[in-house]
Amino acid sequence: MHPAPSVIVFSVLSGAGFGLLFYFGFGFAHPSGLMAFLWWGLGYSLAVIGLLASTFHLGNPKRAWRAFTQWRTSWLSREAWASVAALVLLAPMALSDWLDLGLPRPFGWLGGALALLTVFTTSMIYTQIKAVPRWHHWLTPVMFLSFALAGGAVLAGQSFAAVFLAALVVMLLAIWQVGDGQFARRAQTLGTATGLDRIGDVTVFEQAHTAGNYLLREMIFVVGRKHAQKLRAIALALAAVIPAGLLAISGEVWAFALAAICHLIGALAARWLFFAEAEHVVGLFYGKR
C-alpha cells in the first residue's frame, strides 16, 4: 500500500495526542495553571493537527463533513464521531485544570475512554480490510493502542512509561512476525484470484496496460521494501528501545522530552512500514504483490 505522508503523520500524531488525553482524562497527570494550558494544549494540538493532516489526502476535502453520516457501517465515520466527542467532552476537564475550577476527576473519564476509542476506530479502518491480509488481524488494533498508550505515557511523564515502551518492543516483534506470514496464510495466488488455477499454472503473459494507473500507485507499492529489515531495526530502536533506556536512566523532564521526540520519529518509521509492507490482493492480477 502507498504510504501517504498525510495518513502516516495523522495516525502517529493523533494516536500520541489521544494517548496523552487519555491519561489526562483519567487523571494520571493533573497539571495546573499555565502548565495545564501548555500540556493539555500539546494533547489537543497533536490530536487536531493529526485530524487536519488526514484531510490532506482527500480528493474533495470541502465535503469532509459528510464523513460523520455513516457511523452505522463505516469505521472511518465512527472515528470522526469518536474523535470529536473525545475532544469536546474533555474540554471542561482541560479548562478546569487550567483555570483551577476544581471539577471532580470523573468528569474526564468518559472523554478519556473516548480518546482511546478513537485510536481503536482508527485501527479498525485498516483491520477491517480483508483484501490486505497483513492488516486483517487482531494485532493491528493492539499495535495502534500500544503506540497510543506508550507514546501518551511518555508525553504525560508517567513513571511506568518505560515499561510500556518495553511492551512495545514485544508487540512490534510479534506483529512483524505474524504479519510476514499473513499473505501466505490467505493462500491467494494469481491462480486463485483469476480462478484459472482450475486449468493449470498461471503466469502473466501481457500486462493489461503499459502505463501506470491508480491501482499500481495506490495498492501495489513495492518501492522501499528492500530496506524493510533496516527500517524495522531503526523503528524498534527509536520508538521503543532508546526511549525506554533513557527513562530507565533518568526520570527528569529532559529525559522525557528526548524520549518523546525519539519515540515519535520511531513511530513514524514503524507506521511507514505498516503501509509500505502491506500487500493488497489486487497485486495478484498484475503478477505483483
Partner: peptide, 24 residues
C-alpha cells in the same frame, strides 16, 4: 457526496475502483 478518501478502493479485492485524479 464522495470525498475521495480512497477507502472503498482499498476495500475492493478486485481493483474495480479507480480514483479520478482530476475530479478527486
Amino acid at each position: 457526496a464522495c470525498i475521495g478518501c480512497g477507502l472503498c478502493a482499498w476495500a475492493c479485492p478486485y481493483g474495480a475502483r479507480e480514483m479520478d485524479a482530476a475530479a478527486g
